[in-house]
Design a binder for these strands. Sequence first.
RNA 1: UCCGGGCUAGGGUAGUGGUUAUCCUUCAGGCUUGUGGAGCCUGAGACGCGGGUUCGAUUCUCGCGCCCGGACCCA
Length: 434
Amino acid sequence: MYDRLKGFRDFYPEEMAGRRRAMDAVEASAARYGFREIDTPALERAQMYADKSGDEIVEEMYSFEDKGGRHVAMTPELTPTVARMVVDKGQELSKPIKWVSTRPFWRYEQVQQGRFREFYQTNVDVFGSSAPEADAEVLAVVANAFVDLGLTSEDFEFRVNHRDVLGGLLATFGDDVDTEAGIRAVDKSAKVEPEEYYDLLVDAGLTRDQASQLDDLLKGGDLDEIAAFAGTDRVREGVENLRAILAVTEDFGVREYCTLSLETARGLDYYTGAVFECFDSAGEVSRSIFGGGRYDDLIESFGGQPTPAVGIAPGYATLTLLLQRAGVWPEGEEAISTDYYVLQAGDVREEAARVARALRERDHVVASDVAGRSFGAQMDYADSINAETVVIVGERDLANDEVTIKDMETGDQTQVPVEDFPGDRQRPTYDDFA
RNA sequence: UCCGGGCUAGGGUAGUGGUUAUCCUUCAGGCUUGUGGAGCCUGAGACGCGGGUUCGAUUCUCGCGCCCGGACCCA
């Protein structure tokens, strides 16, 4: 026996059915908004991440030297790759660019709930629009997909904030305030004791009183009050932008899934505007489901034209947990279903093959014996794959030019003339012949 | 990297310093040469790995690995 590598998972059919359904829902939703699918390499030059990603990501990379002496890395995230792709094509691509991509990523991290070393996510990005419609659209793509999967506003919420509101507010407390540290402190506020939170803010350069003021303003959640308190254009514009985004989510019909959350910060440094984070409303999935946000400076930092960008990237490890806890994850027959099992009894290969082919031409899932098994064993198997209908093609019936149609739910069965099956019917069942 | 809790057939479990390691389930075959979801029979299948203590270790001990949580960090 060989061990599976820690943090890498096998997906057996039943679980894969749920994953397929989830991935299809997100991709189909993106497609309905006109996002185009792209695919990207699993390996990139490690230098790209060393230059563009944070130290944490670089330390967690699966990287090695290939046979040509190149220092390469298994992609730990998609954003640098798509940024590279946008820059590569230069002016050739008409804006806005709307791309979607589902694929695995790799990070050498500690394995725990909802986090693995190989993980799949769907990245949904818009390049070339700084309008609030773009931010709202990526939120809407994911919200629509979640609703399609059976989730409701009881199950999840998108917390929306803006870097210019939070960062701009921090900046008004003094020139020597480290806004990045302040943002990280705010990001932690829900997790740590108030004392520790205040200490972190003080470390970022605020006074004790300012920390208290900031806490009150954020908790109050009044955008007008914050804009008035800060009195800077940056905060005022951030507030306007945030309101505009939320207003557009109304147009998309997904406003109810979005919550203004001034304490949502996101760890990544490259976000420049709106930031979003998805949470389990019930609080049972302890970590954020996924995040996203606006990164208007990244393309330029890759050497391209200044190009605003916004993206969101639901990951399937945490989404699976959310779906399971909401009771909308396929189990049993929902996961593994079979329309027909064509059972062979005796030397009936030709006729059984004809029946199976006819049903497959009608686009049904049709299984038949490929192991020379006994009647009882085939029946057992048909049951185990949740066959809805069993078509028994047997020597005895065939002697009368008949086959037997059996409803596996009720156990009812009846003989039908072999030339009448499937006949003109698109999806013949026992009930058609009873 | 750190902190808990675990590890006995595919899944769930009982148990023991000493003959052939328990039971349920599962899987294969049969009872029934043409009927699954009930029953019975037969068979398959396990002490995570390595060192130590011991005449003897699945059991005690140490280390490692893996699993499940959590911290840090993040998606």
